[in-house]
Amino acid sequence: MASLYERLGGAAAIDAAVDIFYRKMLADDRVSHFFDNTDMDKQIAKQKGFLTLAFGGPNNYTGKDMREGHRHLVAKGLNDTHVDIVIEHLGATLKELGVADSDIAEIAAIANSVRDDVLDR
């Protein structure tokens, strides 16, 4: 059976999702301040990394990377609520793109599985 990532359409699906997802994050005052938008291209590239991980695609992130990558955000107050918001926007993005509810649930579970790493606990 095709993997979740392949089912979604691979790299093309990431490209389609990243703008919608990142736009939702930037437009949401509860989380937008975590994103340094002085260099949007770099941020978009990083959010592609996030989506690839969540879609179960090929990535080399380790739990240690997730800890280190978000530690400066934890210092700024990153907590469970923010992770919930990310998962919520991710779900809404996928819904807009017509992804099946069962796949959305699987993706949310992958994102949720790194919660403790992201929050450095």
Binding site: D15, V18, D19, Y22, R23, L26, A27, N37, T38, M40, D41, I44
Partner: peptide, 18 residues
Amino acid sequence: VNPLKTRAFLAGVASRNI
């Protein structure tokens, strides 16, 4: 340039077209 880039993106312009 920097704020307008973000504002145009939020207004719906695709990131690859900016």
